[in-house]
Design a protein around this nucleic acid. Structure first.
Lengths: 179, 179
DNA sequence: TGGATCATGTAAAAGGTTACATGATTTC
DNA sequence: GAAATCATGTAACCTTTTACATGATCCA
């Protein structure tokens, strides 16, 4: 899921300390993404090494042990590169949401093509589900076990349908030329 | 996500070789779950050690190198224990689907309570999303960045709504006394 | 002054991914 | 007989999780 990029994007939205990031990943961001403080501190250390982020030195920082991290231009470019060059499979919807967040902060980053590809793949999968539905659960009466299996399949069907409807809403926001 | 239990449940549905399991995890099962053949072979080895599964010896097996695994009573009990004793957080919906599959093969395992708890938690989260929606995106016109952030939030809202509607459908199937 | 929270880290264990490796069987 | 697929495994690496650890600050 690329923890470092998730952290970079969170830092682009708002420079924070490791502790703050851990809290943000438990709150709003955490609804889609999760990271423990150990992961966060390790990645922050690596990203300082890599020159993607740096610690802001100011009077508040000097007063406490708190280290506030800020994304450097190199880190910003790395985010843009990651968004453009990392292809997603159709199961990584939350990674696409992460890309959208990046697009919201430093965009537009040209996500229209990838969205179109994901839509096509999700439609294909939905079609497969529909076939399974007709083939295996078309009968008038089903056993309890079959009902449960059908319920599992329906979870998949509803997920696809929901996501496809959502994708239609998002499309105009990532299209290059929106009238 | 508990790979060993996912494998046990797949084996309960149909005894298979490691190779077959890998293929099943790439097809129907893989729509909700994923495991590489390396993971599968490692877990199968461990589970034979633990006495949860055993290799079926028959004429077909003797002819080829293929090893067909079958769940032993101890393994079956372990699945039932796992389903009952492993509490899920509200993000692990696919783990709940896995529990449903277990319930379909060796159930009923009493999933009504856990489903009710997940529904309550998901409703609470949906309420939080709705608050954020009103507070942050109630304005008449939004910037492109805000539109995108709103779209991300909507993905969360739609996911919750879809799942809650699905849970209502499933509830009668896991209730202890269905008329 | 004692308990909650802030704030940062290390270390070990478990789990997952990628690459390597081998040989049998089937299909053209 | 060559290529694809069947079938099983090992090893190295990387990431994640869990537990441990420390000290500062804030509030009652």
């Amino acid at each position: 899921m690329s923890t470092p990029h998730a952290i970079l994007i969170a830092l682009l939205e708002k420079p924070s300390s490791g502790y703050d990031l851990a809290r943000r990943f438990d709150r709003a961001i955490g609804y889609f993404w999760h990271a423990t403080h150990q992961q966060i501190y390790r990645e922050l250390g690596r990203m300082v090494e890599a020159g993607w982020v740096s610690v802001i030195e100011d009077e508040t920082a000097a007063a406490s042990r708190k280290k506030v991290y800020c994304v450097l231009p190199v880190g910003r470019d790395e985010v843009a590169r990651w968004v453009r060059e990392t292809p997603l499979d159709l199961d990584s919807r939350n990674v696409f949401l992460l890309k959208l967040r990046a697009d919201a902060v430093i965009g537009p980053l040209g996500l229209a093509e990838e969205l179109a590809r994901l839509v096509a793949e999700n439609r294909a999968r939905l079609a497969t589900y529909r076939e399974i539905e007709q083939r295996d659960f078309g009968a008038a009466s089903l056993t309890r076990g079959q009902e449960l299996q059908y319920a599992i399949l329906k979870a998949g069907i509803h997920t696809q349908e929901m996501w496809l409807a959502w994708a239609q809403e998002v499309r105009p926001l990532v299209e290059p030329a929106q009238a």
